[in-house]
Amino acid sequence: MSADKQDIATGGGAHRFVGLAENLEHHAGRPSGAEPPNVRGDNRGYGLVFFQLDEYHLTTVISSGLRFQSIGADPAQELACTVYREQAEAARYLVDLTAQLLVEMGTHVTPDQVIPNEQPLLANTEFHGVLAGGHPLFPAEFTRFTDADGVEQLQVFTLLPVTLGEINFVLDNGVSALRQQWARFEVDVFDLGRPSVA
């Protein structure tokens, strides 16, 4: 398929993301696997790519293709979730679930947005939602991808699981206060076995 046809097939403008894969790999580690958009049969509009950061024993799952969907985001968006390697399947599930929600609703995430859920998102946990924002470990260049001219083309929002208590805490005190609580109690936000701070 030619580049022009590829642009048309993916919603146009793929050239804006030249160097994105290398940028993600530079921060998130070596690619270790991928899940195609049609993994469940129909094309869901995005795939998932797995990265391993061996130094910290972390896996980051990042959506690939959400940026070409009609979700009203400017700049375009992708989603990420970083956890300890043993919990990679949970990160895959959280990115897939959230991306699917955005595609179905034709909407996008905003910085420090909490996306709640009535039931726990993961079995045997208190996580009732995710907080979308910058990455707690990676630099701003991971979250905000710019083209060769320095124009921001993409934001990669990192999903941090939050408990029901933490969601209620955010409603009363705001996201900044929750981040302060995490810092105060030295919460490891990459550990899905962590306790709630609220």
Rank of each mutant, 00 (worst) to 15 (best):
P139C: 00
S70I: 08
Y84H: 12
G13H: 03
G193C: 04
F169Y: 15
N173C: 08
R30C: 01
P161M: 04
T82W: 14
E166Y: 10
G106P: 09
V114Q: 00
G19H: 04
D96A: 05
V189G: 07
F157Q: 06
F142N: 11
R92G: 12
V156L: 15
A140K: 00
L101S: 04
G193M: 02
Y46W: 10
F138S: 00
L159F: 13
V187W: 03
D4A: 11
V162E: 07
D172Q: 04
L58Q: 08
T60C: 11
N43K: 12
E55W: 03
A80K: 07
V83G: 10
T143M: 01
L192S: 02
A3E: 14
R40N: 03
E78G: 05
P195K: 02
F68N: 05
P75H: 11
V103G: 07
G106I: 02
R16V: 02
A73G: 12
A80R: 03
G13D: 13
V39E: 10
E141Y: 02
F51I: 10
P161N: 04
D96S: 01
A88C: 05
D74R: 15
A148G: 11
G33Q: 08
P136W: 09
A80I: 01
A28H: 11
V162K: 04
Q87K: 14
A14I: 08
Q181E: 09
R85W: 07
T10C: 10
P120Q: 15
V109W: 14
F50W: 10
F51S: 09
L101K: 07
E186T: 10
R179A: 04
N43H: 14
A90D: 08
G33W: 07
Q113G: 12
I8A: 05
D172V: 00
F68Q: 06
C81H: 06
L20D: 01
Q155A: 14
L66D: 02
F145H: 14
L66A: 05
R30G: 05
G33M: 10
L79G: 06
E78D: 01
G174L: 00
L164P: 00
Q155R: 15
M105Y: 01
F138R: 05
Q69G: 07
P75Q: 14
V49L: 07
Q87E: 13
D7I: 02
M105A: 04
I62W: 06
T146P: 01
L164C: 08
Y93F: 15
P36C: 09
Q153I: 07
A90T: 08
G13T: 03
F190I: 02
Q119W: 06
S32P: 01
F138A: 13
D4L: 09
P139H: 01
L94W: 13
V18W: 14
H57D: 15
M105W: 00
A99C: 07
M1Q: 02
G33S: 08
G165T: 01
V189H: 07
R67L: 11
L121W: 11
T163R: 13
A123Q: 10
A3Q: 15
S196N: 03
S196K: 00
L122N: 11
V18R: 15
E152I: 04
A148E: 15
A88Q: 14
